[in-house]
């Protein structure tokens, strides 16, 4: 009882089910390496791919270090500009993660708020919000993201757009994913709102907003955590897809998707490393995050224990 909170957390069922699954531990390690590498890129990366002064075109198209013509200074080779691939991947993962996490946060906030309103208020509010969600769900989310991105791109002048491009991508991916959150939260809210602790709060005469925020919200957040984790994988992939199609983040801040697109041009001329390594990094990151999400979903589901 007296143990500090973090000791109890490590003693919990969650920690136990985490250690019991080697796949989960492995994905956690991979995810940590990806996130750590991305966050600490300015400290860890051997080169700064954005420092044009340090680039040397003579170093372009160097194969990975273990190949015959490889150079130890460039462990994973260089691209057509002579940029170190390892550094580019680390900086690119930074952008991918930034966009992914922000987009998930955005869709979580939006989805949870709308789902809570729909579920608690019911009636016309519920009907309207859920029909909008239904309509949006009939389109693939990547199409929604493309549409939003395209509309904003057309609406804003080019200079302005370049400055806000990152936010546009975050907004586009976030908006394409909110119905999932809204539906889940609405479902749990419908269950919670009729529980007697909510009635007790209504008898006291608390406002609907206060009941929603202090009573219902904490009790519907469990599944949201799982969906958010699973959505992170989706959001990173969606950003990569948009960037691969050339509509995503600005070229001055290349993400993993941008790197893959650039590399794609050289794939058939033999410089496979320019596209394969960013691709592998993307796969490792998304796969590990998704596996973690799957584990979290199962571990938090009492019926599967």
């Amino acid at each position: 009882m007296a143990a500090p909170a973090f000791v109890r957390a490590f003693d919990s069922d969650l920690w136990w089910s985490f250690r019991r699954s080697p796949v989960t531990v492995l994905s956690a390690v991979v995810a940590l390496v990806c996130v750590g590498g991305a966050l600490l890129a300015p400290l860890l990366a051997p080169h700064n791919p954005f420092d044009l002064a340090s680039l040397n075109l003579l170093d372009a198209f160097k194969p990975p270090a273990w190949a015959a013509e490889g150079d130890l200074a460039y462990p994973l080779g260089t691209d057509d500009q002579g940029r170190d691939m390892l550094s580019a991947i680390m900086y690119g993962a930074r952008v991918s993660l930034l966009v992914g996490v922000s987009a998930v946060l955005f869709s979580t906030l939006l989805g949870v708020a709308l789902g809570l309103l729909a579920g608690y208020l019911g009636g016309a509010v519920d009907a309207v919000l859920m029909r909008i969600a239904d309509i949006q769900l009939t389109f693939p989310s990547i199409l929604v993201a493309l549409l939003v991105d395209g509309v904003v791109r057309a609406a804003l002048p080019r200079e302005v757009h370049d400055q806000v491009a990152l936010f546009v991508v975050i907004f586009a991916i976030g908006i394409s994913n909110w119905p999932q959150f809204a539906r889940t939260v609405r479902g749990s809210t419908l269950v919670e709102r009729n529980k007697e602790y909510v009635l007790a709060a209504r008898v006291i005469g608390l406002s609907r907003l206060r009941i929603m925020l202090t009573h219902v919200l904490p009790n519907v957040l469990g599944p949201v955590l799982v969906i958010a984790t699973l959505s992170l994988g989706f959001a990173i992939l969606a950003e990569a897809t948009l960037s691969f199609l050339g509509v995503g983040v600005p070229p001055t801040q290349p993400s993993l998707g941008t790197l893959i697109r650039i590399g794609n041009d050289f794939l058939f001329s033999g410089e496979w490393w320019i596209t394969i390594f960013p691709g592998a990094a993307l796969v490792a990151m998304v796969l590990s995050v998704n596996l973690l999400g799957d584990w979290l979903r199962d571990a938090l589901n009492p019926k599967l224990r």
Binding site: K195, E196, Y197, L199, A200, H215, P218, N219
Partner: peptide, 9 residues
């Protein structure tokens, strides 16, 4: 309330 398992948050 009736259900002591549902009446406390």
């Amino acid at each position: 309330f009736q259900d002591p398992y549902a009446s406390l948050n």
